[in-house]
Design a protein around this nucleic acid. Structure first.
Lengths: 195, 195
DNA sequence: GAGCTTCGACCGACCAGTTGGTAGACCTTG
DNA sequence: CAAGGTCTACCAACTGGTCGGTCGAAGCTC
């Protein structure tokens, strides 16, 4: 194992940021949660901005791998979009990381260090990139439709899913609220002649 | 005027929360911005939670008044929804309060004091309430359609608009990004036979 | 293999600055 | 003079970050 501690620090940071965002977690929180000295965290991640950016970078790396795996296993574009939505349904239902870090941090952008903002931007680009590629694929295969173009369709789906997370959080992390919003958005992309 | 200072404090708090959320603004920020002592703020709003809740409450009050005015002036439900979207387009374009406080705070919910959470919940209820009433109205008038029911349609529109704000913020407060997502969501509610 | 150095990981103690919040004096203005 | 509003000065707790130093494993030399 390369470095267990630094990985565990990233785990804690990720968890904390998902629930509290960037500004409301501290080195002391992680220190207490992990039973590790604050100085140790600074040893691995010199500044708080470094830590947050590293957590985001790892999150994006994992996402990329997961998406590649999804593309390899599931060939139907419609099913891939479905997997995206049901992934978040699961997260919210299991109360485990029930929010996209990118989305929490996005709302804090004006108060975020530049390196962190760059990662947030990158994540949004990643996400809208693979969503629009998938939609594009579905359109050419005649399985999906995107009146305003696949790029806009992707941005809209992403926005609706993020908004649904927000609504679910307001409703006390209720997965039903999320599904009620996100599912129809998915259906809306289906081509006219459906099963 | 009842109390100019307390009103100006709420103005500053609102502005700060729109751009930074709850956890990243301080009494010192307001004190500096207004040239007023920190103790003065505590005199009007004993705790930070009180201040945030009061700002939210005033925001909701203003919204309610605005919505009532809209209902009085604009009778077409479709035009009312249009007004909602173009209101935010303006805010983002003018760089003045380019985000819904409710939405910023919603993502911070797990780290928010209870009174504040209650106001956030209230705001979401207000918003989805009048949106669904408007959509309901439009459906009975045959101007709008809502396949999953007006409540879900309202929640979805709200979610998409919030997600669009997020996307716009990621893109550097770009009103075009917001419109590209929010406008089609509006069109989607239009009844089949359109102009 | 003994003795030495080097190095990354880690820690407790500490730093200056900021946090939300308080106490009490000082103005107004009725 | 009573009351509301504002101020300066203060507080303990916490913020992100630094300091000097300890530990043990790995590498080197004889």
């Amino acid at each position: 194992m390369v470095s267990d501690t630094s990985e565990r620090i990233l785990d804690a940071a990720e968890r904390l940021m998902v629930s509290r965002g960037y500004n409301a977690f501290s080195y002391a929180d992680i220190s207490a949660e992990l039973g590790v000295g604050k100085a140790t965290i600074h040893h691995h991640f010199p500044t708080k901005a470094d830590l947050a950016a590293a957590a985001l970078a790892r999150y994006r790396r994992n996402n990329r791998r997961a998406v590649e795996g999804l593309f390899a296993v599931v060939s139907d574009p419609q099913a891939r979009l479905e997997a995206y939505v049901s992934y978040w349904e699961d997260c919210i239902a299991r109360q485990d990381m029930p929010f996209c870090i990118g989305a929490v941090l996005a709302s804090e952008i004006p108060s975020l260090p530049d390196i962190v903002v760059a990662q947030v931007r990158g994540h949004f680009a990643d996400l809208s990139g693979w969503l629009s590629a998938t939609i594009e694929d579905g359109v050419t295969k005649g399985r999906l439709k995107a009146a305003q173009g696949s790029r806009t369709a992707a941005e809209t789906l992403m926005a609706t899913v993020h908004g649904a997370m927000l609504a679910a959080r307001v409703a006390g992390s209720d997965p039903a609220v999320f599904s009620a919003i996100a599912r129809p958005a998915l259906d809306h992309l289906q081509a006219a002649g459906k099963a």
